[in-house]
């Protein structure tokens, strides 16, 4: 986007040589590829998922078993035998992982951001920030192995876990994984708070504690909030760690009853196994996949739900983040 004004006139004459046009076309093609990627994701997910639903499948010439939208969104069981095609039991466990990992990542992440932004020396920052980057860089399959091999035994000693798989260990490793995202996005927001505000606080006799909690955090609130959403959307899309740690038990969950929502906050239910949307997708892969059967189509239906949720959260976080940028610029 640079070089728009002054240089345009100078370069116009040579701009239309075939070499220039070819170069431009190549670069444009690359950029367009990113749009094509998005369109293919959306198109593929919608098209394949449409074959899964009773309402649209006949239009696409599918005569195999299908699911109604009501069944899919209000069914209380997940399983491909019989009429059990509710996605909500999977969404519920995904929500549990989101809540659990958020409980770890959000307080720790904000505290980390505040420390790095307001308290840490330049030298401490130069060591802590790369260390935090490593937390985010460790592959999720490794976190899954950590959860099963090292964290579940600890949970077992502390709380008595029944069996090898549980949601709690998944929450812990996913929490560690998304912590750096909360920390770095929140820290950026805190750094963007103009120093004038801090000086004004000190000028009124406020302590560093007062300034941090009373000025910096509120002023950066929208950025901090957007970091939560961004990090939680990562937790929702997380696959390997929750697959290895959480197991593959499709819980039953009745989306029409209040009690089942309350059970999401019951600590005991975190000590039991549970299958998230992503874990169910991995499990479906061992089933009837490329042949185009029910499992293949349901895979895309679940994928579509996952995509819509994470996309929605990304857009939301973007909108919130843009607001705070406008505040101080």
């Amino acid at each position: 986007m640079s070089g728009d004004g002054a240089t345009d006139g100078l370069t116009r004459r040579t701009q239309n040589s075939s070499r220039e046009l070819l170069a431009k076309a190549f670069f444009f093609g690359c950029a367009a590829l990113s749009v094509a990627t998005t369109l293919s994701i959306i198109g593929l997910l919608v098209y394949e998922a449409a074959k899964f639903f009773t309402i649209s499948a006949p239009l696409l010439g599918i005569d195999g078993p299908t699911a109604t939208l009501t069944e899919f969104f209000t069914g209380s069981e997940w399983g491909l035998q019989g009429p059990n095609l509710g996605v909500m039991p999977l969404v519920a466990v995904t929500l549990m992982v989101t809540i659990g990992s958020g409980l770890i990542a959000i307080p720790l992440g904000v505290a980390t951001a505040l420390y790095l932004s307001e308290y840490a020396s330049e030298r401490a920052r130069s060591y802590l920030k790369p260390a935090l980057e490593i937390l985010a860089g460790v592959p999720s399959i490794i976190y899954g192995i950590f959860a099963v091999a090292y964290i579940t035994p600890v949970l077992d000693t502390l709380f008595g876990v029944d069996g090898l798989f549980n949601v709690a260990s998944a929450c812990i490793v996913v929490g560690i994984m998304i912590l750096p995202m909360v920390a770095s996005v929140s820290e950026d927001a805190m750094q963007a708070v103009p120093d004038d505000l801090r000086q004004a606080g000190y000028g009124m006799g406020a302590t560093k504690y007062d300034v941090s909690t009373g000025i910096v955090v509120p002023a950066a609130a929208s950025g901090i909030f957007s970091s939560f959403i961004l990090a939680l959307s990562r937790a929702i899309g997380e696959t390997m760690a929750v697959t290895l740690a959480g197991g593959s038990l499709a819980r039953s969950f009745d989306p029409t009853s209040l009690a089942s929502y309350l059970s999401l906050f019951d600590p005991d239910s975190y000590l039991e196994p549970g299958m998230t949307m992503t874990a169910a997708m991995i499990q479906l892969l061992t089933g009837d996949v490329t042949g185009g059967g029910l499992a293949y189509r349901s895979l895309f239906a679940v994928g579509l739900v996952l995509f819509v949720i994470t996309l929605g959260m990304n857009v939301l976080s973007d909108v919130i983040a843009r607001r705070y940028q406008e505040d101080y610029q």
């Binding site: 990113s34 749009v35 990627t37 998005t38 293919s40 994701i41 593929l44 997910l45 394949e48 961004l230 959307s233 990562r234 929702i236 899309g237 997380e238 696959t239 992503t278 997708m281 991995i282 996949v289 490329t290 895979l299 895309f300 994928g303 996952l306 995509f307 994470t310 996309l311 990304n314 857009v315 973007d318």
Partner: peptide, 21 residues
């Protein structure tokens, strides 16, 4: 906007893209 959203798409969805495409 599209690029920043693409970066947030879960990796398993990219797998579906590869499988389908």
């Amino acid at each position: 906007v599209n690029i920043s959203n693409l970066a947030g798409v879960p990796s398993v969805v990219y797998g579906l893209l590869g499988l389908g495409l």
